[in-house]
Amino acid sequence: MAHTLYVVGIGPGNPEYVVPRGLTLIKEAKVLVGSERALLDFAQPEQLTYPITGKLSALAEWIDIQLATSDVVVLVSGDTGYYSLLPYLKKKFPLAPIEVVPGISSMTFAFARIGEVWQDADLLSFHGRVPPESALRYEAGRKLGFLTDKEHNPATIAQILLDHGWPAATTAYACERLSYEDERIEQCSLEAMTGLAGFYHSVMIVIS
């Protein structure tokens, strides 16, 4: 019988926000894959683990070996369907049974933290990519949510939006370490956010 590849979304990271089905799979896993931070938070001593470091070809080879004898649980931050490792795994293991357990995306968690709905927001990403120019245009009443990275942190994105005609007084939020004790959320104008340091892997929300 073929072994199953489980892809489990761990939400913003704090175990309190992982759905019960996901927690059960994680606790019962013999083989667990995830970022170093995720493994630190969730792995148990008896589990065989593999840290995701960015070398995806090596990761795929290792998972393939483990699937020959055991199920494999892969932890992905946020939600499995939102900029996660799922598309890569589906491509690499087209014949393997895959069960996907969704989590809370960092984007939806950030909107919840500031008490805003996101049903009318345009969700974009500067994490390892750049949105098209047309997606950055200013429009009164528009609401944006961004994933950020070290190259495009909230300060950089704020300047990009200002250069695209967004008013300097537009309200912006920078959110990092969501769900953890050292969670940090900064609210200010777009103009002020251009001077905000850090927040390299975070969520930025802009509300016009």
Rank of each mutant, 00 (worst) to 15 (best):
H3M: 05
T4Q: 09
Y6D: 15
I10M: 01
G11Q: 00
P12S: 04
V19Q: 10
V19Y: 08
P20A: 09
P20S: 08
G22Y: 06
G22C: 14
L23P: 06
T24V: 13
T24E: 15
L25S: 10
A29L: 13
G34K: 05
G34L: 12
S35D: 13
A38Y: 00
L39P: 00
D41C: 02
F42R: 03
P45E: 07
E46I: 10
P51T: 05
A58E: 12
A58F: 06
L59V: 15
A60P: 02
W62T: 15
D64Y: 04
I65Q: 07
L67P: 02
A68E: 01
V73T: 15
V74D: 11
V76C: 14
G78M: 05
D79R: 09
Y83K: 04
L86N: 13
L86Q: 03
Y88S: 13
L95E: 14
L95W: 06
A96Q: 03
I98E: 06
I104N: 01
S106P: 09
T108K: 10
T108Y: 06
F109H: 12
A112L: 11
R113S: 14
G115C: 01
G115W: 02
Q119E: 12
D120Q: 10
A121P: 07
L123S: 04
L123N: 07
S125V: 14
F126E: 04
P131K: 07
P131R: 03
S134D: 13
L136F: 08
L136H: 05
R137V: 14
A140T: 10
A140V: 13
G141H: 00
G141N: 01
F146S: 06
D149E: 13
D149H: 11
K150Q: 13
E151H: 05
H152G: 06
P154Q: 05
I157G: 01
A158W: 03
I160E: 09
I160M: 11
D163L: 10
H164R: 09
G165C: 11
T170M: 07
Y173P: 06
Y173M: 09
Y173Q: 02
L178P: 04
E181L: 11
D182F: 04
R184H: 02
C188N: 08
L190W: 03
L190D: 05
M193E: 00
T194A: 07
T194R: 00
G198C: 14
F199I: 12
F199H: 06
M204P: 09
V206Y: 01
I207W: 01
I207S: 10
